[in-house]
């Protein structure tokens, strides 16, 4: 067992974990933050995307022990005082989700995009989503939602 401490959604957490514990397992099983999903085992689907020190990463392709001292943000940490993050609101407004399983990863990925490209084109959005699979929406409304979300984030 190894001790690991990090900040998750603004809260300091410390747990003893097996070194082989993935970050996503840590979030889901140790912290009960089940909004971050696991959709594959080859690091492609992006259902597990979270922010690590402000950038989007696949929580299934990191060990929890690698996150010592890091700041992790998950889908559960986005809404502030009950108010949705503009990207969350945009996904709802533009029907950017159906079954909802890929959605947390999509939203976390989209926010990372907009943080360094405040007004992405449709083409840029589509390329950015290379690491996020969705089987329901055909991506059509996800792209629209991200565009709108970027605009309301101030892009």
């Amino acid at each position: 067992m190894a001790k690991v401490s990090m900040t998750v959604n603004g809260q300091n957490v410390t747990r003893d974990v097996e070194p082989r514990t993935l970050l996503v397992e840590f979030l889901r099983q140790h912290l009960d933050l089940t909004g971050t999903h696991v959709g594959c085992d080859t690091s492609q689907c992006g259902a597990c995307v979270v922010h690590l020190d402000g950038r989007s990463v696949k929580a299934c392709t990191m060990l929890a022990v690698q996150c010592e001292g890091a700041k992790v943000m998950t889908i559960e940490g986005l809404a502030q005082n009950g108010e949705l993050h503009p990207m969350q609101a945009a996904f709802r407004e533009h029907h950017g989700l159906q079954c909802g399983f890929c959605t947390p990863g999509m939203i976390m990925s989209a926010i990372d995009l907009v943080q360094h490209n405040p007004s992405p084109s449709e083409d840029e959005i589509r390329h950015w989503l290379e690491g996020n699979l969705c089987r329901c929406t055909g991506y059509h409304n996800i792209v629209k939602a991200i565009k709108a979300g970027a605009a309301s984030m101030g892009g």
């Binding site: 889901r28 909004g35 999903h37 889908i75 559960e76 029907h95 909802g100």
Partner: peptide, 19 residues
Amino acid sequence: VRRKEDYRFITGGGQYVDD
């Protein structure tokens, strides 16, 4: 109509079997 079910999905509150 915007979907009633969306709030839980966009905030990580969905309850899938593995959750």
